[in-house]
Design a protein around this nucleic acid. Structure first.
Lengths: 203, 203
DNA sequence: ATTTGAATTAAACAAATGATTAAACAAGTT
DNA sequence: AACTTGTTTAATCATTTGTTTAATTCAAAT
């Protein structure tokens, strides 16, 4: 049991500490802008430990990326596979669930979108989300709603993209729009009412 | 028309060549991931010329960023200040105009969103877009439409964000959603019909 | 033809950065 | 105590990267 380092911060192994710091810094600044020394400092550990536990910056990043992707997805997949909830409810749940998620992890959306482009598009294949989505209750309900003429957008992926865009964009676009319009910060507070703006014609 | 070096690449001064290369690489990979040597190579010039014409990587980036911002904005501002077009038409114009813009500059949205966060939020203040938007015809028409109950979203900024999100997100989210769902590329081709999906209940 | 100044190049520099090494340390085992 | 094993640290290495310098080319002006 050499794993207890009671001296300093926590009931937390150094490996966890490094990962947590890496997650924080990576998500905030992206892979390229992150220096291993940033992570080491944030974690309060020696630089060499990063390479001791994880072999390289890339390896560590890949782990963080996968975990981030997974955390982002499981929420969605869970809701989409609920047989009991209606489509309307699902949309609301996805919206409110993701809004909560983004509030807790403000940097994740842009982080994922950015890093997915440059580096790690292939990482998605390591996650079993494809099946989770492809035969979900959501898909069936959506198809039915389209047939009944309740939803204009026939492609479920477009529907999902539009929904996610409505949820995510106010957050990632905030600094830009804010800079443009010079609107104050608390005017943005109401953003989490966004769920009521999402496809209001649904019900 | 004397000084024409028609032999090689272009009717283009090296300074322009560097800027063009810088725009391309910066927009694609972001500031941190871009090496000055990448730009030099892309431009087909000697590395030192980059510092000869533009003093540093930062300076060059700032120029590219400002120009990108401006190009992204002037389109919007122009449409929003047209007194003759209706709000409905404006929305359609903004949508189709931006879709065209994004198709021509696929990397710009994510580039702007990413770099705005980390580096250069203050650059927006160097552009006279604030006024252009704040007393635009769009704003008045939007207010009127809200009073008449034709638009649910009362805040023009939210309205704009939702609109831009609907336009932009399918593009920047494409690699992600595509990876998740494993959908083919040509299924995404129809994306530019997005304008018809934007606030369909308006008319 | 010579001069002049801008444009361009090859080379090098200095700082940053990812990674490694060798030694020290702590804790358990014999 | 001596030994082993996993952990940590300080120092260093090797490469990358932004920038600079000094020399060279080139085109126009004198």
């Amino acid at each position: 049991m050499a794993s207890r380092n009671n001296s300093k911060i926590a009931e937390q192994t150094t490996e966890e500490r490094i990962k947590e710091a890496a997650r924080k810094v990576f998500q905030k600044k992206g892979f390229a802008a992150t220096r291993t020394r940033d992570i080491a400092e944030e974690a309060g550990i020696n630089l060499a430990l990063l390479n001791y536990y994880f072999r390289s910056k890339e390896k560590l990043f890949e782990i963080i990326m996968l975990e981030t992707l997974f955390g982002f997805m499981q929420n969605l997949a869970f809701i989409m596979n609920d047989d009991k909830s209606t489509l309307q409810t699902k949309v609301e749940l996805i919206a409110s669930g993701y809004i909560d998620f983004i509030i807790r992890n403000p940097n994740v959306p842009l982080f994922m979108l950015s890093e997915m482009r440059a580096n790690s598009g292939g990482l998605l294949k390591k996650l079993p989300i494809k099946q989770l989505v492809s035969n979900s209750a959501f898909l069936k309900q959506h198809r039915k709603a389209v047939e009944e003429g309740k939803i204009a957008e026939p492609h479920p992926l477009h529907f999902l993209m539009n929904l996610l865009g409505l949820i995510v964009f106010p957050f990632i676009g905030k600094p830009m729009l804010q800079g443009i319009s010079g609107v104050s910060d608390n005017q943005f507070k109401k953003i989490d009412d966004a769920k009521e703006e999402v496809y209001p014609g649904l019900d």
